[in-house]
Design a protein around this nucleic acid. Structure first.
Lengths: 156, 156
DNA sequence: GTCTATTAGTTCCCTCAAGGAACTGGCCGG
DNA sequence: CCGGCCAGTTCCTTGAGGGAACTAATAGAC
């Protein structure tokens, strides 16, 4: 956790960062997305400190991104699963993958490929407009104050 | 900067986080995207420590996400601008905004709206498959090892 | 010519979060 | 009853973030 909390800003980016902006959190989310659901597994896969992993998991559960599921009563054992809120957050991971593949993968090519169920092809995500369906990137939009804007301040 | 660097992992998410995963970096990117380009302006808008801002800007310039543009020779004064690489990184911000709007905006509604140039409508981004154009989310894909995968390890 | 303001950092100290390793508690199998 | 597994917790050390003061370069006011 960084010292300054972002959740109070009238900014959806800051609020999203408040949930998964801390170091390790996106990688924990990825692990759980690909089926690495248990404390011990995640700790070993990432090489993260157990203390930090405990803190992150607790926060993600509080934020309703993950839910702690008992897979054994005796002894009490838990695994972590994505909620609907958490599943949608994985969109962010797909976009990170896309950017990382394009700009950091280098000679070797992307470390992981994604096959789309609908068409069966290996592909990647693209951003489109929810209204017209055309390509929509940072350069293709105007930014306007919305209903939840803080007075006298414009934040994204 | 968190203690553990992520850039060396064979994982595009980790590599992307290596560039903008540190606290404040996405918010700095956002500021520059919306036209807040100068050190003093960013520092005041975010309330970030000047020391940390210096470190982040330096790193983002080294990572070729930003470029340091001299807008005055005497006295030497600089502003920060997005490179093509940096502009594409803003896609990530749009997806963060979308998630934040959906899950954290609450009663007040989204603080900022985005109008798409192509259709003139206020809308938001959606993820589509680059091959077939259909909706593509985390639940709609199979994950396969790619050419740049580390031996014996699968990372996203 | 000196005084102040502006901009872009740099330096300093202090606190608190991350890393790492050892430890705890519940339970099972031999 | 001993060792092993799992899911954490505790403790200590290091180093990153916060905050404020300081520097350098220059323009403009007086």
């Amino acid at each position: 956790m960084q010292r300054t909390r972002f959740g109070d800003l009238a900014c959806s980016i800051a609020r999203t960062l408040d949930v998964i902006g801390e170091p390790w959190s996106p990688l924990i989310l990825r692990d759980i997305y690909v089926g690495i659901n248990r404390f011990e597994q995640i700790q070993q896969e990432l090489g993260i400190s157990r203390k930090v992993l405990t803190e992150r998991l607790k926060w993600l559960v509080e934020s309703e991104v993950l839910h702690r599921h008992a897979y054994s009563e005796r002894p009490p054992r838990y695994e972590y699963r994505l909620t609907a809120k958490g599943f949608e957050l994985c969109d962010l991971l797909l976009v990170m993958v896309r950017w990382g593949d394009r700009w950091t993968a280098g000679e070797a090519g992307p470390p992981v490929l994604y096959r789309h169920h609908a068409c069966g092809q290996v592909s990647h995500v693209e951003l489109r407009c929810s209204v017209c369906g055309e390509s929509m990137h940072a350069a293709d939009v105007d930014v306007l104050p919305g209903p939840g804007a803080a007075p006298e301040v414009t934040r994204a």
